[in-house]
Design a protein around this nucleic acid. Sequence first.
DNA 1: CAAGATTGATGGTTCAATCTTG
DNA 2: CAAGATTGAACCATCAATCTTG
Lengths: 149, 149
Amino acid sequence: MYIKTMTKPSAATIQAWTGLIRAQKGALHTVETALKQNDLPPLIWYDVLFELEGAGNNGLRPYELERQLLLPQYGVSRVVERIENSGYLKRETCEEDGRGQRLKITPAGKTLRRRMWSIYGPAIEDAIGENLTPKQATTLSGLLEKLID
Amino acid sequence: MYIKTMTKPSAATIQAWTGLIRAQKGALHTVETALKQNDLPPLIWYDVLFELEGAGNNGLRPYELERQLLLPQYGVSRVVERIENSGYLKRETCEEDGRGQRLKITPAGKTLRRRMWSIYGPAIEDAIGENLTPKQATTLSGLLEKLID
DNA sequence: CAAGATTGATGGTTCAATCTTG
DNA sequence: CAAGATTGAACCATCAATCTTG
């Protein structure tokens, strides 16, 4: 376990916290609703397919996905199983490490990822872009970056 | 259904989106983990108890909680049931509207809320305050506010 | 019929235990 | 034993249907 400072938060810190929770909840709701209304799978599928498509011909190990997506190991296991059962990725046995596997996106998976982006992209614009100037968006992402260790 | 603009997001917008998702995920994880490590219930219980304590002697109607906490109606129903079963709130029949109820915090509920804050507050400081100057925290909450309609 | 609220069934997430290989 | 990965059971969230009262 790591060290906790255990001091009380300032009013500005509390406001930033509640804003962060509420803004994310609202934006995520906008995006997930748009996907659902178009009979598309949830956002996490997009994230997985995006990472796999970007990884090239060797695919990715589950533990690499785990790091990228901030998911617990069992979370990767479960979502990968569902996506595989739907035919959008395949598991292959790993040459260099007998404990592991390689996950690769299928052609159908590439198509699905593109279809999802056609809804996802505009939904992000609705949730974020519409409400901020370009300068404000840049400032916001800079500040959020500071919260991510 | 409301109007969708359906334009593509800029790079700055996408960065703000991913930052929002990742920062919230990380901060929430910090807070929920701190609560769990201290054998305390999840954050949503705090939110409910906080609203009820602030509402005074008349308590709140479930649909008021629904609005405050951005929860679906059935979500309120389910979490209120669990908190009631643990003795931290009580349901009373509503005088002025036969369809409804009034939710009121119990003394044990007030104690629990205070105990939760003693962990929750410092965890917010760890997740947010430690990483930002006061000025940055204020700027951040101002920008996040713009995302909330 | 609309609004407030609940509930059975289903699906997803989490915990803890487990299995296999380095 | 540690790291990569899976799984049964329990828990929580969601959908759709339902019930009651305005």
